[in-house]
Amino acid sequence: MMLILFYIASAVAVFATLMMITRLNAVHGLLYLILSLLAVGVLFFLLGAHFAAVLEVIIYAGAIMVLFVFVIMMLNQGQKTVDQERSWLQPATWIGPSLLALILFAELLIVIVLGGSAETGQLVDSKHVAIALYGPYLLAVELASMLLLAGLVGAYHLGKPMIKKTWGKKS
């Protein structure tokens, strides 16, 4: 039962990702990405990582993707962009990198297969995660919060000069 669910979710995730990287319209790509993230969220649940599954849905598919939506709306990608994307996506441009990536995949495949097989699915509930987080990983949590703060400040500053420019014009 679990295995069938796993296969279905995996298929959805791979298919959605494949569609995402080939879409010409960024909004379509974004929707497929959300689908892919949700499928991965299901996989997390199946693997017994309930807490991670919840975070995947709320933060990844929820919060982060909303950012993308905002930006895409701000930049107002129209039909013109779609045509441009089409002209960019010629086979000559994607065959080389794809082959390179496939070689990497083949290598990963060999490594995984050679690694032997093992069963998964041991349930790790959020309580254990929380204990570990605020125990041995306390420093990492602090660092992560620092990183978020830095990201926040960085994003704010990168957005600022646009305001400055209008300032300069007025004064």
Binding site: M2, L3, F6, S10, A13, V14, T17, L18, I21, S36, V40, L43, L46, L47, G48, W94, P97, S98, A101, L102, L104, F105, L108, L109, I112, V113, G115, G116, S117, A118, E119, T120, G121
Partner: peptide, 21 residues
């Protein structure tokens, strides 16, 4: 629950390579 680890890792590799492409 019977999900083999290598299948999970394989899926992870597939998604990673797709993102890379």
């Amino acid at each position: 629950n019977g999900i083999p680890m290598e299948l999970g890792l394989l899926l992870s590799a597939v998604l990673f390579v797709l993102g890379l492409i």
